[in-house]
């Protein structure tokens, strides 16, 4: 059974016909030609297909496209500016060599953007000592929160440095704006 849905993908409104069985990931990759999110396992076990869905990090392999009619999807491709300028998270990944083969990378980047937002909102994690305190941008917090994105090349040290750098930059920026 086919269904027509509309998605906003990286700022562009796209209407697409999908099979009711089509996952959001396959709708993006196979129907819309948006291959920025990657398929590493197709079963929610690797994180390569992570996008920001209505602003939150989300797996697309465990979502049916038809159930997400009207959703706003931001892939790693949509994080960079229209002029091609990299998002601070992407720039930090590049500088710290937080990627090797590059296959998990778009998912890592989207996840990192989500992680920084979750920390900013004060969400605790499994490693937070105090559930009610503001979590810090510590190594332990970032590692735990990024654990849903596997990297077989083992680029975790670079990814950690990149996420922290991007988070600290954003924090400084917010501080400056707050002061001004």
């Amino acid at each position: 059974m086919d269904a027509e849905i509309t998605l906003t993908v990286d700022g562009q409104r796209r209407t697409v016909t999908v099979d009711t069985r089509t996952t959001l990931l396959d709708a993006l990759r196979e129907r819309l030609g948006v291959t920025n999110p990657k398929k590493g396992c197709d079963h929610g076990q690797c994180g390569s297909c992570t996008v920001l869905l209505d602003g939150r990090r989300h797996l697309t392999c465990l979502a049916l496209a038809v159930a997400h009619d009207g959703a706003e999807v931001t892939t790693a491709g949509g994080l960079s500016g229209p002029d091609g300028a990299l998002h601070p998270v992407q720039q930090a990944f590049l500088e710290h060599d937080g990627c090797q083969c590059g296959y998990c990378t778009p998912g890592q980047v989207c996840s990192a953007v989500g992680v920084l937002d979750e920390i900013r909102q004060g969400h605790a994690s499994h490693v937070s000592e105090d559930l009610e305190a503001e979590p810090g941008l510590t190594d332990e917090e970032v590692r735990e929160r990024m654990s849903g994105n596997l990297c077989r090349c083992g680029a975790y040290a670079g990814i950690l440095a990149a996420v922290k750098q991007a988070g600290e930059q954003a924090g400084e920026q917010a501080g400056q704006e707050g002061a001004a």
């Binding site: 994180g47 989300h58 996840s111 989500g114 929160r145």
Partner: peptide, 15 residues
């Protein structure tokens, strides 16, 4: 809260 945070991943918990 602790049980939830010990499960799955950040993405899956959002979903």
């Amino acid at each position: 809260a602790r049980a939830l945070l010990a499960g799955a991943s950040g993405q899956i918990r959002n979903q």
